[in-house]
């Protein structure tokens, strides 16, 4: 039966809802952790969607799949990228009390967290698919 997949999916969506709610509250009150949570989320979206386009290009390079993925994932990555760019503006960083950080250092830490998250995501997806196949 697939019931555990249904529970897992809804559990992940529920945890995601909690994280997004936390990011919304943190950003509303101007907490520094709110900036990190929100910016990591959007940066992760950029990485996921760019990786999605690359995976389709390698695994399923048919015109239809390619154009659909490039439009869908490309738009998402572009919008999320613009939001990350906005969150690096001086007035936004000042609001989150991050003006003492250099942007290079902020970006470096953000890239480290995001790529680490992607590695963890990749591993989890592999494990879940392996479990589904078995």
């Amino acid at each position: 039966t697939l019931s555990w997949v249904i529970f897992l999916t809804s559990g992940i969506v529920f945890i995601l809802a909690g994280l997004i709610l936390a990011a919304a509250i943190g950003m509303w009150i101007g907490a520094t952790w709110g900036w990190w949570l929100g910016t990591t989320g959007y940066a992760f979206s950029v990485v996921l969607n760019v990786a999605g386009m690359m995976i389709v290009t390698v695994m399923n390079p048919q015109a239809e799949a390619l154009s659909s993925s490039y439009i869908k994932n490309g738009t998402r990555a572009f919008i999320a990228g613009l939001i990350v760019l906005y969150l690096f503006q001086d007035n936004v960083l000042a609001y989150f009390r991050l003006q003492n950080w250099s942007k290079g250092k902020l970006f470096g830490v953000l890239a480290g967290i995001t790529l680490g998250l992607y590695a963890a995501h990749f591993l989890i997806v592999q494990i879940v698919f392996a479990a589904l196949v078995v």
Binding site: F14, A17, A23, Q89
Partner: peptide
């Protein structure tokens, strides 16, 4: 420091996303 307008817009969008997630959760489980 005053809250930038873009941050307020993002917070509203995030709030809508939370509601959507809960809606999806309820739908998956029912």
């Amino acid at each position: 420091v005053k809250r930038p307008i873009g941050v307020s817009i993002l917070v509203v969008l995030l709030g809508i996303t939370v509601l959507l997630c809960i809606f999806i959760c309820v739908n998956i489980l029912s």
